Amino acid sequence: MRTPSGRSRAPDPIHWLRYAVAGSLPTAYHQWVLYDLTCGTWVLRHLSRALVQFSFWWLCLLVPGPLSLRFAMVALGYLLGLYFSLSFMEDACERRLLKAGYPPGLNRKIREETPVSERAATVALYASYYPPS
């Protein structure tokens, strides 16, 4: 689905939540997935998805025990999760790209070859050459 400006539109909150917890998006959003993985803020977008994935750590506050211990469990869970999420950020983005039907390495190729100001146009160009399967 495209907006009147020609760019693909972002998924609604329900679809985005599914995408954030490693689900796939319908074909209509696959060009947006490519943009999401190549735009100038792709690292921040990855971190926002990771924070959503780790939100289950808040359930540790329901465990009986001292409040300081419960908050420590939440903090350690988040820190460990963010450490591994940042460590494997490229691989996670690559898997999302493959789920959307694009060839391996396309996101890295776009990020390395294209200046930030021109990435949206480049994503549209690549999406037209590599339609998601």
Rank of each mutant, 00 (worst) to 15 (best):
R45I: 02
P64M: 13
L82D: 02
P11I: 04
A75W: 02
R18Q: 11
L59F: 13
Y83V: 04
F56H: 12
G40T: 07
Y35A: 06
A50F: 01
V21I: 14
A28E: 15
Q31N: 09
I14M: 14
S68C: 09
A100Y: 00
M73K: 06
F84H: 13
G65P: 04
D91I: 03
L76P: 04
H15P: 03
G101K: 01
T27Q: 15
G40E: 10
S48L: 14
Y102T: 01
P11A: 07
C39M: 10
A75R: 06
A28L: 14
P103Q: 09
L98N: 04
S68P: 06
F54W: 10
V21E: 04
A75H: 05
S55W: 06
T27K: 15
F56Y: 14
C93P: 00
V43N: 02
H15Y: 06
R70D: 07
S87C: 09
G77H: 05
R45N: 10
V63E: 07
L67A: 15
T38E: 02
R45W: 08
L76F: 12
S68I: 05
R70M: 10
M73E: 03
Y78W: 12
T38N: 05
G40P: 06
D12E: 14
Y102W: 10
W58R: 09
F71G: 07
V63Y: 10
Y102M: 11
R9C: 11
L79H: 04
I14A: 15
C39W: 02
F54I: 04
Y19N: 04
F71D: 02
V74Q: 07
P13Q: 05
P103T: 01
Y78S: 10
F88Y: 15
W16H: 12
H46G: 01
Y83G: 11
L61H: 06
M73G: 13
F84R: 12
S48N: 07
A75L: 15
C60N: 11
G77C: 11
F56G: 13
P13M: 07
W16C: 06
F54E: 09
E90K: 11
I14E: 14
P26R: 12
P66F: 12
V43F: 03
A92K: 11
W32L: 06
A20G: 05
A28R: 15
D12F: 12
Y29L: 08
R95D: 13
K99A: 15
S85K: 00
F56M: 08
F88T: 03
P103I: 02
L98T: 00
L25G: 04
W42V: 08
D36L: 05
L86E: 01
V52L: 15
V63T: 09
S87N: 08
F54C: 06
L76I: 10
Y78P: 08
L82E: 03
